[in-house]
Each structure stands twice: as C-alpha cells, then as structure tokens.
Write a protein that binds this DNA or RNA. Structure first.
Lengths: 221, 221
DNA sequence: TCAATTAATGAATTTACGTTCATAATTAAA
DNA sequence: TTTAATTATGAACGTAAATTCATTAATTGA
C-alpha cells in the first residue's frame, strides 16, 4: 500500500459518491413526479377510491415503477401529506415571526394559508380529509402524522398568545377556539373553490372576511 | 260467480293481507336491527373500511341475511343516512315553527340539533363525513341524497330570513353563512364528544356558546 | 463498443372484500 | 304430524386492486 494506491482509492471512492449523488437527485425528481400525480389523484378521488394504477398513469410510469419509489400506497400518501404540511408550516413560521401583535400574527396566518391553498388547490381536499381523520375514533391503518399535529399546535399557540394579549376571549380553551378558526377557514375556502371563476375574490378581501367572521361573528352590529 | 264465492274470495284475500302485515312488521324490525349495527360500524370505520362482515357480526346475523334486507352495501348505507336525516329534519321543522323571530329559530335549530346528536353520537360521525362528501368533486358511486340537500336548504332558509330581519349581516350569501354556522357547530360538537366525561357541558350552555360564537365571534368585546 | 449494473415494465400473484346460492333451519298451513 | 313456504346461513365465487417479480430497456464504466 503506497501513497499512490491511497490516492487511487480516494479517487475511486469519490466517483461512486458523485454518481450516487446524481442518482439521488434523479431519484428525488422522479419521486416528486409521482407525488405530484398522487396529489392530483388523491384529491380527485380520495384515499380509498384512488388506485395505484390511476397514480402510475397520471405520472406516466408503469405501476411497478411507482413501487420502486414508494414502499406501498400508504407510504406514498403519507409522504405526500408530510411534504405539503412541512411546506405550509415552514411558510407560516417564517411569516408570522415578522408580526408583533397576536392579532397581526392571526392575520398573517390566515393570509398565508389562503395563499398556500391557492397554489395547492389539490392539497386542500387532502387537508380537509386529513383533518377529519383526526376526528375519527379509529383511524384505519393511516397513522396520525406529527406534522399534522404540529400544525394544529401552531394554531393553538397563536390563539393562546392572543388570549394572553386580551384580544381573544378566554372563556373557552385555545384548542376549542383554534378549531373554530380552522373550521370557518375551511368553510370559506371550500366555497371559494366551488364558486370557481364566478366569485373571484382576491386573497386580501377573503382574509379579512375570515378574520372578521372569526372575531366579530355574523350578527349585524 | 254467486255472492258466496265473492265473500269467500274476500275472506281468502284478507288472510294473506293480515299475515303479510305481520311479516312486514317483523321485516322492518330486522331491518332496524341491521341499520343500528351499520350505524355503529360505519361511524367507527367509515364507509370504505367498514365491511359487510363487520356489520353482520355486529347485528348478530350471518352475512347472507344482511343481503336479504338490503340490496347491497350502498343501499344499506344510503338507507341509514336517509332515515337519520329524515328524523333530524322532522324534528327541526316541527320545533322551529314554534318560534317567532329568526333569531329564536336559529337558537332552536342549534339546540335541537345538539340534542339530536347527543342521542345519535354514532350518526354524528356519519353526518360529518357525508357533509364532506358534498365537498368532493367526484363523489364516487354514492349519490348525494335529497334529504341531505333538504337539510342544507333548511339551514340556508333560516339564515335568509335572519338576514331579512336584519339580524344577520347581508354582505355575504346565506349559503356561505349557513356553511359557517354548520362548521362552527360541528367543531364544537366534535370537541364535546372528544372530551367525553370530562367536559360535561349541558346542552343549553353549549347552544348558547355556539350561538354566541356564531353571532359575536371570538374577539374580546 | 461491450459487459455489467441499474431502472422500468406490466403480466402474474395475492389478498380482501362484496355478493351469490345451495343447503339447513324455522315457521306456517293443512 | 306432515308438508310447504319462508328465512337464515356461511362456504364458494367473482372481482378489483395492491403488490411482486421475471423480463426487458437504459445507463454507466472500462
């Protein structure tokens, strides 16, 4: 073992490492392809009625290929939900720190979430059904993802600090009120999507409607 | 054909009619058994993960028997949803006519719906998922039931008359606001069930919380 | 260019139901 | 009690979808 052989070795080692990295990149791109297709199909049909064949077709791969990238249907679905929630949470955290008051934070939360769903309409349907899954006693085989829980906790924290700042009523738990905020939000977004081209509301006016409804309710003042 | 033969005929006709009625009664009782079991299983597992075997077992019948009473899984599910919605709607209509103002009607609506779901906790889960089905683009094979639509329309009418009486804001459609009311309602009921024995709130206090939240929002006044 | 390695394919297999149906048990009629 | 009619049963069947795997295609390295 002379110096040369060591250099040689290192050189040899480097190459596979390089090509492995490229492979990994390609692999991720293809995974992303499949995730995009899955998002579309799951949103359209829901978890149970979406088939792996549907997803493979949408992604323009053979069905076997899908299984090279995801262990099974479950893993594919969970990976999808996880990625999207992660993106959403990252945005929310990044944007809300900029605000000073709790009320501003809630405003930003609503605006950024709306804007996220405008860009990810398909995911909105998955978000809704994922949220309902939390509400079932028996969640089938699909485990509750930690990002989903983190997202929920994030909203609860927003409300909690608003309660501390006397902006939100404290006669009910932050959890209860956070759920109500999300409920109102989903109801409005759903109607927005349903109306489609007709009721093109801009994000700001929708944000303020949701905030107004949440803070002040539906009564004539 | 003399008079006697006519009388004889009538007598002969009567008997089968009688026994048919008893049979029908028995049949309905057994159907009700199966519906009860189905309600339990569908609530626990959701439509897709509930199996006919599960339902048969819960009802303590063999699987073949279930098919003597319901054409298929779909028919069983739809029959269940239809029965329950019918009951709920009947109560709501009966009770709300008693009120004079639109606000009173909304109060009664909330109270009676809460009280219905207290008696039909299993059905609440089905109600929630049925409601989300309406929100899907592609509803699979399960058709949208007219009772479900009627229920929705009922709520919209409540809001519409409240808008006419200047109780509810009119800057958004009755439909939009009705959806928000239902959303808030479901969120609160869900939390109520989840808390279980801990947070035993009585119906009246919950009703007034929902109404207060809906009319006045979450802000500190 | 030519192995050799890696990735893609989709037919074949497995599995999990929904649904049917020949058989048995029960009830009613004679 | 015997026979006929009705109801219940669950093993067997069919189907659709998830998953696997032998084969083929593409890529890489020498």
């Amino acid at each position: 073992m002379n110096v040369n052989s060591l250099i040689e070795d290192k050189f040899i080692m480097e190459k596979p490492r390089q090509s492995l990295n490229r492979r990994e990149r390609d692999r991720l791109l293809r995974q992303a392809d499949i995730l995009r297709a899955a998002e579309h199909v799951f949103a359209l049909k829901g978890y149970h009625e979406a088939t792996m064949q549907d997803i493979a077709k949408e992604a323009q791969y053979a069905i076997g290929t899908v299984y090279l990238y995801f262990k099974d249907k479950d893993a594919l679905y969970l990976s999808l939900v996880e990625h999207k929630y992660r993106d959403l949470l990252a945005i929310l955290k990044e944007e809300t720190v900029k605000a000073k008051t709790a009320k501003e934070k809630i405003e930003i939360f609503i605006y950024e979430t709306l804007s996220f769903f405008e860009r990810n309409q398909n995911f909105f349907r998955i978000f809704v059904s994922e949220r309902n899954k939390n509400q079932e006693i028996k969640v089938g085989k699909l485990r509750k993802l930690s990002v989903v829980i983190q997202h929920k906790e994030f909203v609860v924290e927003l409300i909690k600090s608003a309660q501390e700042q006397q902006i939100i009523r404290s006669d009910f738990s932050a959890k209860q009120i956070a759920d109500i905020l999300i409920s109102i939000f989903m109801s409005v977004v759903f109607n927005w999507f349903k109306e489609g081209s007709k009721g093109i509301k801009n994000l700001s006016s929708m944000s303020s409607f949701i905030l107004d409804m949440f803070l002040n309710g539906a009564a004539v003042k």
